[in-house]
Amino acid sequence: MTGWIGTPAKMHEFLWPVSLKEGIPTRYSIQQAAAKSWAFVTSPPATRNREWSVELDGTNADSAVIRSFLYGAYGPGPFHFISEAASLTNALTPAQSLLSGVSNGGAVATADGGHSPASLVGGGLTVLADKVPVLPGAPVTVSVDASGATELIIQPRTVTGANAGGAKSVRAAGDLMQRIHAFIPSMPATARTITISAQGFNQLACPQVVWAERPSPWDVGGGADSVILLDGSSSFHNFELYSRDFWREMTLTIKEVG
């Protein structure tokens, strides 16, 4: 799997993908008596505690940027990280995709027969996610499940937060619970992040951002906004005589902090 790492000002792609493993450590600490165990919850919902193990295989040119990261040339961090899987399933962070901290309503059945544990009710203009990284020139599709006369708005922003071009706004057709999609085929050259907001809804759930021109089925967010590159190792395995490329296998550990 490939992926992008960096800051919204510049997200760097690293190549070539071999595998990506994502680990979510336990949320519990168990204390054991003779006849009973007690589980203490160690972290609140949507805590940043994921860890990824990334394997790459590439030439010096392909891996130069990632090696610069490992040496601290891009600063201590933390960085944004969107894996390729996240970019095609849901580039939001898990907290943003679960409306953590934003929701004010209870569970709701979604348009495709699924279920969301939290939702937003009321219909006032609400920012669902802010500072979601996007690639300039690349397409973005934003989707939500909503009922009521919903208006979904994507506002591209520059790195400073100023508007980069006009907002894209999509209105729901009808009042029943449906999945609404808003799509920008190519982000403006100055756009670095988007702000997603909605208004006019009765009940809203399952926000999703996909770096593609078509939507995907909803998934919990796979993006991360606060990671560090913990360690990396390279194993050199090939040398191209004529292009003078050294092929190396790299293993990286990316850890979410904060």
Binding site: Y28, K36, S37, W38, A39, F40, V41, P44
Partner: peptide, 10 residues
Amino acid sequence: EPGPVIETRL
């Protein structure tokens, strides 16, 4: 009266 899963916050 804790149940088997206890959520505490310090």
